[in-house]
Design a protein around this nucleic acid. Structure first.
Lengths: 226, 226
DNA sequence: CCGGTCCCATTGTGATCACAGAACTTGCAT
DNA sequence: ATGCAAGTTCTGTGATCACAATGGGACCGG
């Protein structure tokens, strides 16, 4: 650890060490690289990522602000546990915001954009038959956010990202328990609605997808946690 | 600045320096202590608040994560400007989330709680006739969040707090321009609905209050900014 | 009087160190 | 074998320093 460069600040905006650490941790949280309840330490992450504790502190602080990590009263940092209350609030917030994002994206989606999304959905189907949980989560994330990003609504998108960060670890744990084999999503309905330019249909498909997917993992895993 | 204590960490959870800095900055943002576009510097805030730059860095990082502050490409930190797009997204998100929070709070509100809210509304009326913009903003904040806090929905509350942080500075600037004299809110309607236990009425009153208040400042100030 | 160029002050970033408190481990006594 | 206490290690926090890059201002040439 002593041979690390003294100052690797390269100058530009997104190229700081804490930004890189933030993105790596965020990826792991989104896709289930951390289990709920897992404790993390600044020095531990720093050594693991090959940086000093300082940028890790800033990245962790940011993730705590986004509710992706939590700090206990004694200062220890951990991946938050899911509660039934929290799960239900996440479900509500997703249903309130994500259909709107999809609807706003609709008018801006070119046929090529829609085919990109369709291709992502095909990838998802492969992960489902293979039982590849992490692959499924990555694909599902890309399916939703590829659409949402076209809405050009950074404020709403930020809220939704914060919500996804809050249920990512739990989702992974839940899929680990109940499996993804019998999972049926509403992605096809969403794709057809997009191709038709049917805003109401797209809203309904996204809402159904959220309700179905969240119900799937909620039923399977939540009952066991209190 | 040299006579500062070397380490003032008192131990408990909420008593760290960066937490205190965070709360002070957050207050100023909520109630219009910073103007949009205002640039802030870590060392400047540190000296102003009597701490070293370190806790300021963490507090500012957190506020950036909550979108209350923004970082330009060159690393400079400033209070974000409002755009028409952003304003419209804020309006949508508030309308989607806040009536729900109020509705969830309703069953938990005791008559005494409602009278507390009614008293806050009386204070607001005083600030309106006095033209006390900051007092109005503090009162309006307390009116809404006193209700919302009773919903016991920390996840949703966090989203709403983040949204308020994003329009606080703009709201202050807007009121400074158009004044608060002719402002009519829907707080009385909300209070009556709460007293009746009328959930639909409360939802409608909150939604109307948001739409009216945001329309008030949006019409007055937004047209001038692009 | 105006425009460009160089220089210095200021800024965020990251490393390192010191410190206090919490937690875990170890050892001892019962 | 078990419970408790003391010591040690580990944790987050905050201060200070070094550094690179940006920005503004002064100075000079036109």
């Amino acid at each position: 650890m002593a041979e690390r460069l003294h100052n690797t600040q390269a100058g530009g905006a997104g190229s700081t060490a804490h930004e890189a650490v933030y993105r790596r941790l965020r990826e792991r949280i989104f896709f289930g690289g951390f289990l709920p309840g897992r404790a993390v330490t600044l020095r531990g992450l720093a050594e693991e990522l090959g940086v000093s504790p300082m940028p890790v502190r800033e990245a962790v602080r940011r993730l705590i602000a986004e509710r992706a990590l939590a700090m206990q009263g004694n200062g220890r940092v951990l991946v938050p546990l899911m509660t039934r209350d929290k799960f239900e609030q996440v479900l509500f917030a997703r249903s309130a915001l994500e259909p709107e994002l999809a609807a706003r994206a609709l008018s801006r989606l070119t046929p090529q954009d829609i085919e990109v999304v369709a291709h992502i959905d095909e990838e998802i189907d492969k992960t489902l038959v293979n039982g590849d949980t992490e692959g499924y989560m990555r694909g599902n994330f890309r399916f939703h956010f590829t659409i949402y990003e076209h809405a050009d609504a950074a404020t709403l998108l930020g809220l939704v990202e914060s919500i996804w960060l809050q249920f990512g670890p739990f989702m992974r744990m839940a899929y680990g328990r109940v499996g993804t084999k019998s999972l049926e999503d509403h992605h096809q309905a969403a794709l057809e609605a997009m191709r038709r330019g049917d805003e109401a249909g797209l809203r309904a498909a996204i809402r159904a997808d959220i309700g179905q997917g969240m119900g799937f993992i909620g039923d399977g895993a939540l009952e066991r946690l209190q």
